[in-house]
Lab assay of single mutants.
Amino acid sequence: NTCEECGKPIGCDCKDLSYKDRHWHEACFHCSQCRNSLVDKPFAAKEDQLLCTDCYSNEY
């Protein structure tokens, strides 16, 4: 699979995080606004962007 954020392949030695058929490296899986990691945290998706709950609450 190819990472949505950096565009590089996700190798066998990396954790592949996925959501709705989109894939990310663990280090690339972060909020589109504040850039905080979303690994093991709740998040929301809006208009193809992933947002942490704080940024989502502030926007919507």
Rank of each mutant, 00 (worst) to 15 (best):
N1D: 08
N1I: 10
N1R: 02
N1K: 07
N1P: 00
T2R: 09
T2P: 02
T2K: 10
T2M: 13
T2N: 00
T2Q: 13
T2S: 08
T2E: 02
T2H: 14
C3N: 01
C3F: 01
C3G: 00
C3S: 01
C3K: 01
C3E: 01
C3V: 00
C3Q: 01
E4C: 13
E4L: 05
E4I: 08
E4R: 07
E4W: 11
E4M: 12
E4S: 05
E4Y: 10
E4Q: 11
E4G: 06
E5M: 12
E5T: 10
E5F: 15
E5N: 09
E5R: 11
E5W: 08
E5I: 03
C6H: 01
C6K: 03
C6A: 01
C6G: 02
C6I: 02
C6F: 00
C6T: 01
C6V: 00
G7K: 03
G7S: 03
G7T: 14
G7W: 05
G7F: 13
K8T: 13
K8N: 01
K8V: 05
K8C: 04
P9I: 02
P9T: 10
P9C: 00
P9W: 01
P9S: 04
P9H: 05
P9N: 01
I10Q: 01
I10N: 01
G11D: 08
G11Y: 01
G11W: 04
G11T: 04
G11P: 02
G11R: 05
G11I: 02
G11E: 08
G11H: 05
C12A: 15
C12E: 13
D13W: 04
D13H: 04
D13P: 06
D13T: 06
D13N: 06
D13Y: 07
C14L: 12
C14D: 13
C14H: 08
C14P: 12
C14V: 12
C14F: 14
C14G: 13
C14K: 14
K15S: 06
K15R: 12
K15D: 05
K15P: 08
K15T: 10
K15A: 08
K15L: 07
K15Q: 10
D16S: 09
D16C: 11
D16N: 14
D16L: 09
D16P: 12
D16Q: 08
L17Q: 13
L17V: 12
L17G: 10
L17R: 13
S18F: 07
S18K: 04
S18E: 14
S18T: 12
S18D: 12
S18L: 12
Y19I: 11
Y19D: 07
Y19K: 03
Y19T: 06
Y19C: 01
Y19F: 09
K20S: 07
K20G: 10
K20C: 07
K20H: 07
D21E: 13
D21Y: 02
D21V: 00
D21Q: 12
D21A: 09
D21C: 00
D21S: 07
D21M: 01
R22C: 03
R22H: 03
R22K: 09
R22E: 03
H23R: 06
H23Q: 06
H23T: 04
H23L: 02
H23S: 05
H23M: 02
H23G: 01
W24H: 01
W24M: 04
W24C: 03
W24T: 03
W24S: 05
W24I: 03
W24R: 05
W24V: 01
W24A: 03
H25D: 00
E26Y: 03
E26F: 03
E26T: 09
E26D: 13
E26W: 03
E26L: 02
E26I: 02
A27W: 09
A27D: 09
A27M: 11
A27C: 10
A27V: 09
A27E: 11
A27L: 11
A27R: 08
A27H: 05
C28T: 04
C28V: 01
C28I: 00
C28A: 02
C28N: 04
C28L: 00
C28K: 02
C28S: 01
F29T: 06
F29P: 03
F29K: 03
F29A: 15
H30C: 09
H30D: 06
H30T: 08
H30G: 13
H30Q: 03
C31N: 00
C31S: 02
C31M: 00
S32A: 15
S32N: 05
S32K: 12
S32D: 09
S32Q: 10
S32R: 05
Q33T: 11
Q33V: 13
Q33F: 10
Q33L: 10
Q33G: 14
Q33P: 01
C34V: 01
C34T: 01
C34R: 01
C34D: 01
C34L: 01
C34I: 04
C34K: 01
R35M: 07
R35C: 10
R35L: 09
R35A: 08
R35D: 14
N36V: 11
N36L: 13
N36S: 13
N36Q: 14
N36M: 11
N36R: 11
N36C: 09
S37R: 08
S37N: 07
S37K: 11
S37L: 10
L38H: 01
L38S: 04
L38R: 02
L38T: 04
L38N: 04
L38G: 02
V39I: 12
V39H: 12
V39G: 12
V39L: 06
V39M: 08
V39P: 05
V39D: 12
V39R: 13
V39Q: 11
V39N: 11
V39A: 11
D40H: 09
D40S: 07
D40K: 07
D40G: 08
K41E: 10
K41R: 12
K41I: 10
K41P: 05
K41D: 08
K41T: 12
P42Q: 15
P42N: 15
P42A: 15
P42K: 14
P42I: 05
F43G: 07
F43R: 14
F43I: 15
A44E: 15
A44Y: 03
A44K: 15
A44V: 06
A44W: 06
A45H: 15
A45L: 10
A45V: 13
K46P: 12
K46D: 15
K46E: 14
K46T: 08
K46L: 09
K46F: 04
K46H: 12
E47D: 14
E47M: 07
E47I: 06
E47K: 07
E47H: 09
E47R: 08
E47V: 05
E47P: 07
E47A: 13
E47Y: 09
D48L: 09
D48H: 14
D48A: 10
D48V: 08
D48I: 03
D48M: 08
D48K: 08
D48C: 07
Q49S: 10
Q49G: 09
Q49T: 13
Q49H: 12
Q49P: 07
Q49V: 11
Q49R: 09
Q49L: 12
L50S: 03
L50Y: 01
L50A: 04
L50R: 02
L50Q: 06
L50M: 13
L50K: 06
L50G: 02
L51P: 05
L51K: 12
L51A: 07
L51G: 04
L51D: 04
L51E: 05
C52E: 03
C52W: 00
C52G: 04
C52R: 05
C52T: 04
C52Q: 05
C52H: 03
C52M: 01
C52F: 00
C52A: 02
T53P: 09
T53I: 03
T53C: 08
T53N: 14
T53Y: 03
T53H: 14
T53L: 02
D54L: 07
D54R: 11
D54C: 11
C55S: 04
C55G: 03
C55T: 04
C55D: 05
C55N: 04
Y56C: 13
Y56Q: 15
Y56V: 12
Y56A: 13
Y56N: 15
Y56M: 14
Y56H: 12
Y56D: 15
Y56I: 12
Y56S: 15
Y56R: 14
Y56W: 08
Y56E: 15
S57N: 07
S57V: 07
S57I: 02
S57Y: 03
S57D: 13
S57W: 02
S57L: 02
N58K: 10
N58V: 13
N58C: 07
N58G: 14
N58I: 06
E59N: 11
E59K: 06
E59L: 06
E59Q: 11
E59I: 06
Y60T: 15
Y60P: 15
Y60A: 15
Y60K: 15
Y60Q: 15
